[in-house]
Deep mutational scan, measured.
Amino acid sequence: MDGTRTSLDIEEYSDTEVQKNQVLTLEEWQDKWVNGKTAFHQEQGHQLLKKHLDTFLKGKSGLRVFFPLCGKAVEMKWFADRGHSVVGVEISELGIQEFFTEQNLSYSEEPITEIPGTKVFKSSSGNISLYCCSIFDLPRTNIGKFDMIWDRGALVAINPGDRKCYADTMFSLLGKKFQYLLCVLSYDPTKHPGPPFYVPHAEIERLFGKICNIRCLEKVDAFEERHKSWGIDCLFEKLYLLTEK
């Protein structure tokens, strides 16, 4: 054995408090879109979701699917093309516009009456609605409950000090017999300040354990050449399924 860690023996890093005071403002996230600093976007979609999607959907149609901090995630069109209703929230209007443009979807925009100064973008087909606002303002819009949440790049982007508020927001959107698919990253948080932030299993239990059954479905090596600039040499991604207790 050469000592290389595999996707099945990932350790939890003990120094989980080192990132707790890290803060990125909404304006800084918007600047990332304006300046093209969106390496977190996956042009081909998320491979773990693609692998498990049909198993999760079980042939159902007409589900309501929520994408927190959606950006221009191509997976939104995957669900819409399968007959589901997609709702996303994203602070960057540019990111939302790029989604519709890159997916060749016509759309309209209208003000969100409950949140002055914000807009919702709706596909002409009517099954994709993307709200351009802070996720913490979203419950004011009465958008209803969801059958499924796809959380990739959301919890790991939320400032650590806001995670409890974020989890409570997610709980307010969950319908009966929900499936909450959650991706988190595992790396040494003493070497990279984030975002994306390190979210250990214990944190998921703390945030969601009282209401959800929590199961880790898969762990994969997600390290890429660009991650060397973070000062790390190891990065794993974990896919969790959260269901109603």
Rank of each mutant, 00 (worst) to 15 (best):
K122W: 04
E224S: 10
K50I: 04
R163A: 04
L241C: 13
D188S: 04
T101D: 12
S61C: 14
N213R: 11
I115M: 12
D147K: 01
D2W: 06
E43N: 02
L185K: 04
L242R: 00
G153P: 00
F197L: 03
Y13Q: 07
I128A: 02
D15W: 06
S14T: 07
I135W: 08
F178E: 01
V120G: 02
K37N: 08
K145C: 09
E110W: 09
C165V: 15
I232S: 06
Q42C: 08
C70G: 05
P193E: 03
L130W: 01
K60D: 07
V74M: 06
I211Y: 01
I91R: 04
E98T: 15
A73K: 04
N21L: 13
S229Q: 15
S106D: 14
G45A: 09
T118W: 03
T6V: 13
K210C: 11
E75A: 03
L24M: 14
T16V: 08
H41C: 11
H46V: 07
Y180N: 01
E11N: 00
W29M: 03
N213W: 03
L155D: 01
S124K: 14
E205K: 03
H227S: 06
Q30N: 05
E225T: 10
D221T: 06
I211N: 15
E114S: 13
A202W: 11
G175L: 07
M76I: 07
Y131W: 08
V156C: 10
P189S: 10
P111V: 13
K20T: 14
K145M: 07
H41L: 05
L26Y: 07
L53S: 09
I10A: 10
G153D: 15
H227P: 07
P116M: 09
H41R: 06
M148W: 09
N21M: 13
F171T: 14
P139Y: 04
T141C: 04
D162L: 10
E218T: 09
K164V: 06
G83E: 03
D31F: 07
D81M: 04
K191M: 07
E12H: 11
K122G: 03
R5C: 14
S124M: 14
E43S: 08
A157S: 15
Q44P: 08
G209K: 08
K51R: 14
T101H: 08
P160H: 09
G161T: 13
V65N: 01
K176H: 07
V87K: 03
I214G: 01
D188C: 10
W230V: 04
W150R: 00
A73T: 07
D31P: 02
I112A: 06
W78R: 03
Q97V: 13
G36F: 08
E17A: 10
C133Q: 03
C216T: 10
K219Q: 07
A157L: 04
E11Y: 13
F66I: 08
F67T: 03
I115R: 04
D81S: 11
I232M: 05
A222S: 11
F146A: 02
W29L: 04
S129F: 06
I149P: 00
E28T: 07
G59H: 04
E11T: 05
I135A: 04
P196Q: 02
N142H: 12
D147S: 02
V65F: 04
V89G: 02
P160G: 03
W150C: 15
E110L: 13
T118E: 11
T16L: 12
W29P: 05
H192K: 04
Q47T: 10
L69H: 08
M148H: 06
K219G: 10
F178A: 10
S92W: 03
H52L: 15
K177P: 15
L242V: 07
M76E: 01
W33R: 04
R152P: 04
V87E: 02
I112C: 02
A154K: 01
N35S: 15
F121H: 01
R64A: 02
G209A: 13
L174V: 09
Y166K: 00
L181E: 01
L24T: 15
P200F: 01
E43H: 01
V65H: 00
I143V: 15
I204E: 01
W33D: 10
E109R: 13
T243P: 01
K210D: 11
L53N: 02
S124F: 09
K119E: 01
Q42L: 14
K20S: 15
S186G: 06
T113W: 12
Q47G: 09
D151K: 00
R64T: 11
D168M: 11
R226V: 05
D188N: 10
G36S: 12
K164S: 08
Y180C: 01
L48R: 05
F236S: 14
A222D: 04
L24R: 13
D147E: 05
P139V: 10
N159A: 04
K210P: 14
K122H: 02
N159K: 05
K122M: 05
L181Q: 02
K50M: 12
K219E: 15
L185T: 10
P193S: 12
I232Q: 11
L8R: 11
G126V: 06
F56D: 08
K191L: 12
K58E: 14
V199F: 05
E12T: 10
F67V: 08
S85G: 03
W150Q: 01
D15E: 07
F56K: 15
K164R: 08
I10L: 09
K177F: 10
F223V: 10
I211R: 11
E17S: 09
M1A: 14
K37R: 10
S108D: 02
F79R: 00
M1S: 09
S229D: 15
Y198N: 14
K219N: 06
R215S: 09
D54M: 02
C234N: 05
S7V: 07
S7T: 10
C165S: 13
D188V: 02
P68R: 00
T4C: 08
N21D: 13
E90T: 04
R163M: 08
S134P: 07
R163C: 02
K60S: 11
L69F: 09
G83C: 03
I10M: 11
L69W: 02
Y131S: 00
F171W: 13
W230R: 05
Q30I: 12
C165K: 04
C70T: 02
E75N: 08
H46R: 05
F208W: 13
F121D: 05
I91K: 09
G45T: 12
F100A: 00
E28D: 15
C133F: 03
F136R: 03
C133N: 01
L63W: 11
E218R: 03
I128Y: 03
R5T: 12
I211V: 13
F79S: 02
C212G: 10
I204V: 09
E90R: 03
L69I: 06
G194L: 05
G231E: 12
W33A: 08
Y240D: 00
S229G: 13
E27W: 08
A222H: 15
Q103V: 09
I143C: 15
E27K: 04
D9V: 12
G175V: 11
V23T: 09
L182W: 00
L182M: 10
V87F: 11
P111I: 15
V89Q: 05
V184R: 02
T16G: 13
V86Q: 00
T243A: 12
P68Y: 00
L239T: 07
Q44V: 14
V86Y: 01
E237S: 10
E75S: 05
S108W: 11
P139S: 05
D162Y: 07
S229E: 08
R82I: 12
Q19R: 02
D221C: 15
S61T: 14
L182G: 00
T38W: 09
G175Y: 15
L105K: 02
S92E: 02
L217Y: 14
A39S: 12
F178G: 10
K32M: 10
P196W: 03
E237P: 03
K177Q: 15
F178T: 02
Y240G: 01
E218Q: 08
L242N: 00
V87D: 02
R5Y: 11
Y198T: 08
G88S: 02
L94E: 13
P116V: 11
Y187V: 03
K77I: 02
T25A: 02
M1L: 14
D147G: 02
T118G: 13
K219P: 02
S14N: 15
T169G: 10
K119S: 10
K164D: 11
E102S: 11
L24P: 06
K72P: 03
F66K: 01
F121L: 07
T4V: 12
S14G: 13
L235P: 04
F66C: 06
G45L: 14
S186A: 15
K145T: 11
L181W: 04
Q97K: 01
E237M: 08
A202T: 12
L63C: 04
W150Y: 11
P160E: 05
R215H: 14
A39Q: 12
K176V: 14
G36K: 09
S92M: 08
I149E: 00
R64G: 01
K210S: 14
S125W: 14
K191P: 03
F79G: 00
K177E: 08
I10F: 15
G88W: 01
A80G: 02
L26W: 05
V120E: 02
L155T: 12
L241S: 10
F171G: 12
L49Q: 09
H41A: 07
S108G: 08
E237D: 04
L241M: 04
C216R: 11
V199P: 12
L24K: 13
D9A: 13
G36L: 07
Y180S: 00
E98R: 09
G45R: 05
C165P: 15
